[in-house]
C-alpha cells in the first residue's frame, strides 16, 4: 500500500492504494468517479480514457503510481454543464445509444482537438479508432467532432 497524491479534475486527492492498481480502479472505487468505464482491462477498447496532463491515456493499464503528483481529468471534469463544444455537439448529433463508451469517446476527441484543433478526416480516424463502440455510433461521432470544430470557431 502507498499513499498516492494526484490531482483529479483540479482537486488534490490522497489515496491509500496498491501502487500497482490501475488508475481506472483508483478513479472508480476510491475517488468515486464512475464516469470512466471498465471495458476490457487490456488497454484495447478505450472506455477508460482520461487525460493525464492533458494527454489521452487508457487508465485500465496505467499503474496509479505513475500518476503520482500529476494532473488527471476525467469526463466529470471536462465541463460541469455540458458546455464543452464536444459535449454540445454530442447532444446536437444525438451520438450516444447505450452511452457506456461515450466518456472514452469524448475524452479521446477532446485530447485530439486540444493538440490539433483542425484535424483532417484521417487524423480523426486514427485518433478515434482506439475507442470501441458496440452500439455503432461511429458515423455520429464523426459528425459531432466536425460540428465541435465549428462550434469552437464561433
Amino acid at each position: 500500500m502507498a499513499s498516492i497524491q494526484v490531482r483529479i479534475n483540479g482537486e488534490m486527492r490522497a489515496m491509500e492504494v496498491d501502487p500497482q492498481m490501475p488508475l481506472l480502479w483508483a478513479i472508480r472505487d476510491f475517488a468515486g468517479l464512475t464516469g470512466t468505464k471498465f471495458g476490457c482491462g487490456i488497454g484495447q477498447c478505450g472506455a477508460c480514457t482520461v487525460h493525464l496532463d492533458g494527454v489521452a491515456v487508457k487508465s485500465c493499464t496505467l499503474p496509479v503510481s505513475v500518476v503520482q503528483g500529476k494532473s488527471i481529468t476525467t469526463i466529470e471534469g471536462l465541463s460541469a454543464d455540458h458546455s464543452h463544444p464536444l459535449q454540445q455537439a454530442w447532444i446536437e448529433e444525438q451520438v450516444p445509444q447505450c452511452g457506456y463508451c461515450q466518456s472514452g469517446q469524448i475524452m479521446t476527441a477532446a485530447a485530439l482537438l486540444k493538440k490539433n484543433p483542425h484535424p483532417s478526416d484521417k487524423e480523426v480516424s486514427n485518433a478515434m479508432s482506439g475507442v470501441y463502440c458496440r452500439c455503432g455510433t461511429y458515423p455520429r461521432i464523426r459528425k459531432a467532432i466536425t460540428k465541435a470544430i465549428t462550434l469552437s470557431k464561433s
Binding site: 464512475t34 464516469g35 470512466t36 476525467t74 460541469a80 455540458h82 459535449q87 450516444p96 452511452g99
Partner: peptide, 21 residues
C-alpha cells in the same frame, strides 16, 4: 426528437449497473 437520456451520457452522470455502490 432529442433523447432526454443523452445529456447524462455526455458528462459521466448516467448510472449503469457497474456504477452502483
Amino acid at each position: 426528437t432529442r433523447r432526454q437520456d443523452i445529456p447524462v451520457k455526455t458528462n459521466g452522470k448516467a448510472i449503469f449497473g457497474i456504477d452502483v455502490k
